[in-house]
Computed example of a mutant assay.
Amino acid sequence: MYLSSIFKVWQICLVTFVSLLILVPSMAFAQGSCSASKARISAIEPLIAGPIAGLQTEGHPVDLSGFTFKRGDGAEIQLADFGGKTVLLNIWATWCAPCREEMPDLDALQSAVGGDGFEVVAVSMDRKAPSKPKAFFEETGIRDLSLYYDEKMALFNGLRAKGMAFGMPSTVLIDADGCSLAHMAGPARWAADEMKALVEKLKDGGSGQASNSDCATPGQINLLKRIDARKSVKP
């Protein structure tokens, strides 16, 4: 009886030790994968104002690189496939009125600052995707957004489990490492100057440290001047 108890205790200790050997490195990897993201959050927080003041940075960063959905041609894609590019991930559906209203703004943002360093990734949750969102894009003249969808809503449910999606539209700002920086519930004027300035900051690295790439262009200077002017106006 005594030997049996000792053996059981030994088994429990062995299982705990092995679990720690597996868990600790994986936790360290998860934290390390988003190690640069905290500095990016600090760099963009002063720019979160005006029409995008609803962006919430609390609870971030979180590694979202493994989240999946589909391209317009039906091929599965991961957020990791956008590596090296800042992503504004928007969850929407054609039956959602606020989603429909903000889609032209998202299209305008992609047109203005989209490219190698940034993309608006609007993922439709329509059950009849991709035909339903494709028809909506054509009817409303959405030209610069690529078509993405997830008819099973796994992406939405995954983000909801992490406290980043409660309804539609829901939007998550993701950095070049696939880590979340901020999220917003509800629609916004995404093509506003404040958002463009924030995107440009992240495209420049968003580290908060000065570098050669931090030399602002005349257009960026004008954007920042307009933002400062708005902040100085009392309601």
Rank of each mutant, 00 (worst) to 15 (best):
S170A: 03
F166T: 02
R160E: 05
A154G: 12
A154V: 12
A161M: 09
P169V: 05
M168W: 06
P133Y: 07
A161G: 15
N157R: 04
S146G: 00
A154I: 10
F156M: 06
G158F: 04
G167K: 03
F137I: 12
Y149F: 15
L155Q: 06
M164E: 07
E151P: 15
A135P: 06
G163T: 03
E139H: 09
A165S: 03
P130S: 04
K134A: 13
I142Y: 08
Y148M: 07
A135K: 10
M164N: 06
K162V: 03
R160S: 07
L145V: 11
F166A: 06
M153T: 11
L145Y: 13
P130E: 02
T140F: 14
I142M: 12
F136E: 12
T140V: 14
K152R: 11
K128A: 06
T140K: 15
N157Q: 02
D150L: 03
K128H: 05
I142V: 12
K152N: 11
S131K: 02
A135G: 05
F136P: 13
S170E: 01
L173M: 01
K128I: 02
K132Y: 10
R127T: 04
F156T: 01
D144R: 14
G163F: 03
G163D: 04
L145K: 13
L145M: 13
T171I: 05
G158Q: 05
T140L: 14
S146L: 00
A154M: 13
M168N: 05
L145S: 10
R127P: 00
A129E: 09
S170K: 02
N157A: 00
F136L: 15
M153S: 14
K152G: 04
Y149T: 10
E151H: 15
N157Y: 05
